[in-house]
Each structure stands twice: as structure tokens, then as C-alpha cells.
């Protein structure tokens, strides 16, 4: 997995709440057997007109937000389906960080598996970041995972929370499966004991 240590980039304000995974990556693009190449389809229905041309009012179609690697958005981002195609599509279009007041659980979890950092902040701080991104569009935001801070020059600095295990995995680009396989012996011990208790399952 790609490491995440620090990141500096342009933030795009997506003023919507409950952005669901069908909006992030509509179902017709799930008929793939690959993880890559989904970026061009991200937000398809709100990003492109029926004829395939860009919708001018969609934030990621505007400069300088076309270059954005940070998305600032409303509450309950990523609700809906479990499709990991949603973080794959965002990552593939260059988004590394999503900042929102809250996230849906499965999307939140899936993001970390792809070297992305979802950050939940209080609504007022999200509003401030959103306004900043609109008023001073070109100025980058810096995210430091080690220090757990979001800063914008000397304008502001917000701390953020992250689960220590997830932080460790992101900082080091660790693969969960590799970590778990190191516990192979504990897994077999569990199975042996469980076979006594719940024999019908095996």
C-alpha cells in the first residue's frame, strides 16, 4: 500500500451532504475486474452531461479544482454501498484526503486500505475550510499525519483524530493481510478451540 506521511494540495469544496457511493461511482462502472482506471468515471452523473461533455457547474471541472487532491464535503460522505470502487475512483483521480463532518463506516474503512486519509472534523471547521477553499482557491492545504494537523500557511491549524492502528499502517504503508498472517498460529489455536465449542460449523 502507498504510504501516507504528509500531503500538500489544493482543496475542492463539494457542498453536498450524504454523497453516496452511487454518486461517487455509478454502478455501470463496477463491471470491471480491475482496481485501476476508474478516476475518469468518478462522480460521472454530476460531472458529465449526457453527451459526455463536462458540466460546468461541477466543482472538480473548474480551475484550479481540477488539480485538487483534497476534497472538502458535507456530512455522511460515502454512505450506501460497500463498493471499494468509490475510494479506488477517488484515488485514481488524484484525491488523497477527504475532509467531512462525518463519514459512512464502510467507505471510511475502505479508504485507509488504499492509502487515502479520510478526516472527520467538527462542522464549524469543515465550514471554515470550505469557505477558504472557495475564497482562496489556489492556496494549498498541508496535512501532516504524524503530527495529526491540517494547516493553511499561517492562517489556521486544526488537529485531527485518527485511530492509532490505522495511523501506523498508513505511515508505513503496511499491508493488513501480511500483518494478520503473522498471527497464523493464534488463528489455528482459535479454530481448534472453537471446533470443540461449535463443532457444527466446521
Amino acid at each position: 500500500m502507498q504510504k501516507f506521511t504528509t500531503h500538500s494540495g489544493i482543496a475542492a469544496p463539494l457542498r453536498m451532504m450524504n454523497v453516496d457511493t452511487d454518486i461517487i461511482i455509478p454502478k455501470q462502472f463496477l463491471r470491471t475486474i480491475k482496481r485501476t482506471g476508474l478516476g475518469v468515471h468518478a462522480f460521472n452523473d454530476i460531472r458529465y452531461n449526457e453527451d459526455g461533455s463536462d458540466k460546468e457547474d461541477f466543482v472538480l471541472n473548474k480551475e484550479p479544482y481540477r488539480q485538487a487532491s483534497i476534497l472538502i464535503t458535507g456530512e455522511n460522505f460515502g454512505c450506501g454501498s460497500s463498493r471499494e470502487h468509490a475510494p479506488w475512483a477517488l484515488a485514481d483521480m488524484g484525491i488523497r484526503v477527504v475532509i467531512a463532518p462525518s463519514f459512512a463506516d464502510i467507505f471510511f474503512n475502505n479508504s485507509f486500505k488504499n492509502g487515502m486519509l479520510p478526516i472527520a472534523l467538527p462542522q464549524e471547521q469543515v465550514d471554515q475550510l470550505m469557505n477558504e477553499a472557495e475564497e482562496n482557491p489556489g492556496t494549498p492545504i498541508e496535512i501532516d499525519l504524524e503530527k495529526q494537523t491540517i494547516t493553511r500557511g499561517n492562517k489556521f491549524s486544526f488537529p485531527f483524530e485518527i485511530d492509532p492502528f490505522r495511523k501506523h499502517c498508513l505511515l508505513n504503508g503496511l499491508d493488513d493481510i501480511g500483518l494478520t498472517l503473522q498471527k497464523g498460529k493464534e488463528i489455528s489455536t482459535f479454530e481448534d478451540q472453537d471446533k470443540q465449542k461449535r463443532s457444527w460449523l466446521y
Binding site: R35, I106, K113
Partner: peptide, 20 residues
């Protein structure tokens, strides 16, 4: 509960998941 594809792979390989 529902899981993403990375976790599908994790379960296939280990029959476990990392959870809180």
C-alpha cells in the same frame, strides 16, 4: 456486515478481519 474488496481478500486469505 458488509466489507470492501480489500477486506474480502483479507477474509479469503485468513478467515479473519481487523476490527474495533
Amino acid at each position: 456486515f458488509g466489507i470492501g474488496t480489500s477486506e474480502v481478500e483479507h477474509v479469503l486469505a485468513t478467515q479473519t478481519l481487523i476490527q474495533k
